[in-house]
Amino acid sequence: MMNNNNILQFPTAAQSSRDGRLLIPARFTEARLAARLTQTELASRIGVSRQAVSSYEMGSKQPAPEVLLQISEELRQPLNFFTKPETETFGRQTANFFRKKGADTKRRDQACEVYSKWFARTVYAFDHIANFPKVDLPSFEPAHTQAEGYSDEEIEHYAEETRQHFGLGLGPISNVIRLLETKGVSICRFEMPAENVEAFSYWVGERPFIFLASDKRSAVRRRFDVAHELAHLCLHRWVGEEELDDPQRLKRIEAEADHFAGAFLLPRKSFPNEVYSTRVESFVDLKARWKVAIQAMVYRCKDLGIFDERQIVNMYKQISYKKWRTVEPLDSGVTAIGFEDPILLKRVAELVFKSGRYPVDELKADLALSGSTLEQLLGLDEGSLTRRTDVRWEPTLK
């Protein structure tokens, strides 16, 4: 049965056909990949053959009006998404830095590729109105050949240089996400249920992006994820897709990013001075101060040679005995360290909508994305863009 709400919100498929607005194959594929559905799975849901879905994506056949409406409802995007050409963006997009690639992550990676494009286009839609911070990230390359990667000393040095570039001292960083937003990095948090994606980063033209895709229960692990992606933006901009497809090369790149994140969050010139015991309980206060996981601090102690191998092994045994492998002190409850969330784009959107300089309906028409998708990309409260729009827009207050 047809959904009356959809008929009220969007023109019918028959109207689209009469107006000459036909399904654009690439847009159809985008929506299907974002929904993480195969052609066979989607075909089953909309009541056509897999061959029919394939022909829609190839552009050799147009779906019947009623099928186009079903496609819109099943993929949860408005009809004009499928009939409107792609909007502009900042330029060419680099490869996304996923921590694992392969046959078992293909569906996830394809969805993330689509979301990353949508996020860049959403930021670009506000670029002519908002005065976003100027991009201010340092860029590094290995001293020797790129194939050899970075030495440990190079990574330590470049992490220190990055802190100096940002005007940071040697103490803890109060809010990593807020810091990077002031340096021109666009960041969003987009939940992907049932998918194991911590975060990934990429460049579009001269604009850097970080996409947080996991619902981690630990604020400090999210901070480490962001520092890890900063490493990719500063160290690995020159890395190509073919290198990321090489498991051994990807493993090294990820290890370099982890090392950089540890060095950036826990500087070698200050952090060791505060480590005084191999008892893991002594790291709880350090975690509260530095906002870094106890296990990450122990690993940093190993990197810096603060403790020998036997002591490090003993510390990990303590962590296992206390059942801190997945949930550490200060991860939950009233004493939990608070999460850091992106705020810049949300504030821009709220100010722009409230001023009337860029009405919600105009944004939806420009990007042709569903209100719920835009809410996540902009960091807005659920329902902000999906309730009635015939009244003045006001932010949803919690």
Score class of each variant (00 low, 15 high):
S218C: 10
K317T: 04
E113T: 15
V327M: 03
I210D: 06
E254Y: 09
V360G: 09
N3M: 14
L235H: 06
R310E: 15
L367F: 06
E161F: 11
S270F: 09
K364R: 13
L351A: 09
L33V: 09
E74T: 11
Y299T: 14
I46W: 07
N175H: 12
N96E: 08
S370A: 12
K354S: 08
L170Q: 13
K106G: 12
T162A: 07
E256P: 03
F283V: 03
N196K: 14
L23P: 04
V391C: 02
F307K: 02
Q146R: 15
I294K: 06
P138M: 10
H165L: 05
D109P: 08
L137R: 07
A120G: 08
E30T: 05
G102Y: 14
I343S: 02
V67R: 06
S54H: 10
G169W: 06
E350R: 05
A14N: 13
Q318F: 08
S372V: 13
S355K: 04
P208A: 09
A34S: 04
F90C: 12
R388Q: 01
W203C: 02
A296D: 10
H236P: 07
M1S: 15
R178P: 03
E206T: 05
M1A: 15
D104W: 03
E156F: 13
M1C: 14
S116Y: 07
Q9M: 15
D341W: 05
S320E: 06
G102S: 13
F28Q: 01
I46N: 06
W393V: 00
C188Y: 00
K106I: 15
L233M: 01
A296S: 11
R121S: 15
G333I: 11
E88R: 12
E66N: 08
V298D: 03
L75S: 03
L235Y: 09
S384I: 05
E156Y: 13
W393P: 00
I177T: 07
Y358I: 03
P342L: 04
L266R: 05
T29S: 08
F119P: 02
L23I: 04
D225H: 14
P138Y: 11
Q110W: 11
G205H: 06
S270M: 04
L68R: 01
S270E: 08
V313W: 04
T396F: 09
E195I: 10
I187P: 00
T89W: 01
C301L: 09
F81Q: 03
L363Q: 07
C188A: 06
V292Y: 04
P78H: 05
P138N: 05
A143N: 11
H128I: 14
F98C: 14
R325P: 00
S384H: 10
A31W: 07
A194I: 12
S201A: 15
R108H: 15
S186L: 03
L344T: 05
N273I: 13
F82D: 03
H228I: 12
E241H: 07
F307V: 11
A52G: 02
T396G: 09
V360F: 04
V220N: 12
S370I: 12
A35S: 14
Y299R: 13
R252L: 15
E254G: 11
P63Q: 00
D225L: 12
